[in-house]
Write a protein that binds this DNA or RNA. Structure first.
Lengths: 224, 224
DNA sequence: TAGATTGTTAATCGATTAACAATC
DNA sequence: TAGATTGTTAATCGATTAACAATC
């Protein structure tokens, strides 16, 4: 699918076939980071936040933040900054985070337990509806309030609960085969926390997380 | 520090005050992702890899991959691709990953155990030299072959082992105070796995990981 | 040779930044 | 009013991509 710029559209918006406008990759990524900071600021009781403060936390240039936001409306108040609650709502609307999404978690090892028992997904409106493990000894144990289920149940749960997102906290050897099955079952977004690389059909998104890779280039900039 | 383009320098290289050239942010990030794929390909016994294949795994355009690499030399063979071992070595050299780095891990909960017992850092030449926890009940337990130490020992260990990198797998409430102490002790790169945002002085890099934020914009592109 | 893939050019697009008038 | 911060312009730089000759 090729997209071209819409005449007169705000910067960062791109025409698409299926709707009025679609955010560019960079803008969508940055908006979700702003939202993360705003969510934290809410918890800390802040009422307003300036683009300069947002910049310190996100490491995004403050001019760019104002530019990103001004494409969608005039959300700020000059001399004051942005209202935290109102801006968070605006960004949620832009990112269309209204729909509750069900997530399935695979792997009940240390990492699976860490993810399953944290509020990190719940905080953003995501719902971990099931935890699976291939090891019969782990089945039935509790992870974050959920009973671990046998991996054989995955197909049925994915279909019944409309699960689009799977989080893989499994050993590298198991990841590719599992990914194939999940894609066949209807999963469209895979968060891969195994060290293995995943091959998936077009239309499926894989997000592979590897802290060592991030560290590699963080160190490069520190050392040079 | 302002940097300007060096006349005739390869694209992606930027002049710096302290050395001949310095990679741009994007190039360094991409190179480390290529290295991740190459490392995996080595494990799978692959001898060569084409820019097209690298592209499928990294989701980086294949022309850009060839462009990135050709800035440093002619590493490929036309009609064949890139030699996996040789290219991995070249990228390691470019990223200057020669120096063994010592890492300290904070928090021996589920996430700390997951990180401490994985090979993810060791695979890239990083050395987890100590695991700390504030909870006396966790002190002395084993995490990935290491005995968990009391947090009071952190200052000494950081100094003695020249620890530049700290990984924070602690509750959000504890993160900022711990970060302040670590920075004072000499830590310069912090990997923050808590939900809290960290305020650090200039010159210290924070890498905050939040899968829910990544999911937010992955979903945006799926839904629209 | 024939097929495949690199290395490179040229053109376009989006990101980044400084600067500043508008205005709260 | 005085100070602060937004919204916006203009200019520059880096990323992205298609295309293709070179060559393995």
């Amino acid at each position: 699918m090729t997209s071209s710029e819409t005449e007169g559209a705000p910067v960062g918006l791109v025409a698409s076939d299926d709707g009025p406008t679609r955010l560019s990759l960079g803008v969508a990524a940055r908006l979700s980071r702003y939202l993360q900071v705003l969510t934290q600021a809410q918890k800390m009781g802040r009422e307003t936040l300036s683009s300069q403060e947002l910049s310190e936390y996100t490491r995004v240039n403050s001019t760019q933040i104002r530019r990103d936001l001004s494409g969608f409306g005039k959300f700020g108040k000059r001399g004051v900054g942005y209202n935290v609650d109102a801006l968070a709502d605006e960004i949620r609307e832009i990112l269309q985070t209204g729909s509750q999404q069900n997530i399935a978690l695979f792997g009940a090892g240390h990492l699976g337990k860490a993810i399953g028992s944290s509020d990190i997904f719940a905080d953003h409106g995501f719902n971990v509806v099931a935890v699976f493990d291939a090891d019969p000894k782990k089945v039935g144990t509790k992870v974050g309030g959920q009973s671990v289920r046998p991996i054989e149940d995955a197909n049925r749960v994915i279909a019944e609960q409309d699960v689009l997102v799977a989080v893989l906290a499994v050993p590298g050897e198991a990841a590719q085969r599992l990914a194939d099955e999940l894609v066949a079952a209807g999963v469209r977004i895979i968060f891969n926390y195994s060290e293995s690389l995943l091959d998936v059909p077009a239309g499926v998104t894989v997000h592979t997380s590897n802290p060592a890779v991030d560290l590699l280039h963080a160190l490069y900039f520190y050392l040079s």
